[in-house]
Amino acid sequence: MSMTGQAMTRREWLLSERPASRMQARLGRAYVTWRRFSANRLAMVGLFIIVALLVVAALADVLATHSPYIGDLKNARLLPPSADHWFGTDDLGRDIYTRIVHGSRLTLFVVVLVAIIAAPVGLAVGTVAGYAGGWVDAVLMRVTDIFLAFPKLVLALAFVAALGPGIENAVLAIAITSWPPYARIARAETLTVRNSDFIKAVELMGASPFRIVLRHIMPLCLSSLIVRVTLDMAGIILTAAGLGFLGLGAQPPLPEWGAMIASGRRFILDQWWVAGAPGFAILVVSLGFNLLGDGLRDALDPRSGDQ
């Protein structure tokens, strides 16, 4: 009884129309967003998948049953799924379950690094172009257009070919090819708020353009950018897997999911699990990111945020 009473007051405190401190206002806002997000069941499924991915990556050493690199070539080549090898073994006798568990680290590494590099670059380019206008806008957007004019995978291939194969270079190549859409989004968002009265009001305080972009425009572009990046994560994973598949991403013996599919390709009809298991992992994680992104879009949309 007293428990529910306390929970109620905490909820009321969060939902208060008259927050008494900065902290309470911020927490209240976060709580409203969380409520909107958690009401969406599919989004919660997506969140669960991504949290599971994080846990697996963090505890890979504990969860793995074998070594991801050293296989038993003599006794355990291409074994079907069994109690000992849950997802079977590959042509070098390595346990596929273990490799997938360790591969989650690589997937996260790629996704997070690409997001950290590409999103801020896109945000900065887009907001500056949108707010400055004139020739700054023209130059920045033409550069963006040049990047957009090439198909993503082809451009990434070219970069990797120039930089040399390897997972770091794959990340770099994907980042270089994925910022232009973010710049476009940020610019479009900036253009809608640039002439609004609340930006004019800040200009009338004498605030510098730098301050206006950084403190007033960027926060408004952030939510649509987060949504877009989350939705793009699936594509990033697929591009990374594609590069791995072509031998231009992670190099053997790294357990990268795309490279694992590539090596399992030869046995796909007889030993389907070699390519099937990493393929399924890519599918599930991509789906997770997509569901999460959809949920975030509904929860963060500033236009529906008036409640």
Binding site: A25, D197, F198, K200, R211, G305
Partner: peptide, 25 residues
């Protein structure tokens, strides 16, 4: 400004809105 719905930043608290001119100056 004319439109009270358009002249306040939608993501800022009243506190932050009032702090901004003081910070700028």
């Amino acid at each position: 400004f004319q439109d009270p719905y358009g002249s306040l930043h939608p993501r800022q608290t009243v506190d932050r809105l009032l702090q901004e001119p003081l910070a700028v100056h």
